[in-house]
């Protein structure tokens, strides 16, 4: 089906804003009802919008699936590494070892901020990969 000019233009102009909103949800995760998982899904939905309006190949040029696979695996490794850092410095797995800021500001959660970013990138990469495979498959 040929896509019309309107959908093409609007999704083109909306795509960076949706990615930025996903990053906002991730980075304000300890202050607002967002968080790593929800922000990652919003990031993925931005890429789905481009997939639907301009085809999978155009989205794959921006985010190559080979690199996405590497990002997803490395983010999980990084998550484990941060947990092990808490184990080494303090007592428990995933213990906070960064200074706490003032309540209500952005840098107030210690390393929850970095943990949220790691989880968000991992979830986003995973859902984008699932959608690429399903959209490219031939079907029956």
């Amino acid at each position: 089906m040929k896509e019309s000019e309107i959908v093409d233009m609007i999704s083109r102009k909306l795509f960076p804003y949706i990615l930025l909103f996903g990053l906002y949800l991730i980075s304000y995760g300890h202050l607002s009802p967002g968080g790593g998982f929800q922000g990652g899904v919003v990031l993925a939905s931005g890429v789905i919008l481009i997939c639907l309006s301009r085809g999978v190949s155009s989205a794959e040029r921006v985010f190559p699936s080979r690199k996405l696979r590497i990002v997803e695996a490395e983010m999980f490794f990084l998550f484990l590494l941060m947990g092990a850092g808490g184990l080494l410095i303090g007592k428990y797995f995933l213990e906070n070892f960064l200074p706490l800021g003032e309540a209500g500001e952005v840098p107030s959660g210690g390393f929850i901020f970095f943990l949220n970013i790691v989880i968000g990138l991992k979830v986003g990469a995973g859902i984008i990969l699932i959608c690429f495979y399903i959209l490219k498959s031939k079907g029956e």
Binding site: M1, S4, I6, V7, I10, L14
Partner: peptide, 17 residues
């Protein structure tokens, strides 16, 4: 204001085609 006309345009286009 940006997306609502686009949604109705998509539905209309689907019916027209």
């Amino acid at each position: 204001l940006i997306t609502s006309p686009v949604a109705s345009h998509i539905i209309g286009k689907r019916a027209w085609e």
